[in-house]
């Protein structure tokens, strides 16, 4: 890999960009992700995980088994929003901000 090698294809993040944030103290895949967007695109780090581990290893000397994996999250593969929706029309955990406006004696506090 040279400095211009693209590590994250989805977000087009190069070796050099990752090297820079490691220089600023980033140590894990997720640190690097938040600072560069590496791994935040459609593939959600499926392609770049091991490449980033190689960069971390090369730059910090950390053994591979000590480099944590990125945190994977649902839905793992892109899925349409309507597929996640249900027929329910009531909300419990999800709020509207107006729900939070409290009235006291018919007035806003």
């Amino acid at each position: 890999m040279d400095k211009s090698t693209i590590i994250c294809r989805c977000e087009e993040i190069s070796y050099e960009e990752i090297e820079e944030v490691i220089g600023n103290g980033a140590r894990t895949f997720d640190d690097i992700k938040r600072l560069t967007r590496c791994g935040m695109g459609p593939c959600q780090a499926k392609i770049c995980t091991s490449l980033v581990a190689k960069v971390i290893h090369a730059e910090t000397g950390k053994p591979f088994h000590e480099i944590p994996l990125p945190r994977m999250r649902m839905p793992l593969s892109p899925i349409k929003l309507e597929t996640l929706a249900t027929s329910s029309t009531s909300f419990s955990t999800v709020k509207s901000v107006l729900d939070e406006v409290e009235l006291e004696d018919g007035k806003v506090r």
Partner: peptide
């Protein structure tokens, strides 16, 4: 109109 939009992640 978001119904066909793809969700890539939850956090």
């Amino acid at each position: 109109s978001l119904k066909k939009a793809k969700i890539v992640r939850a956090f």
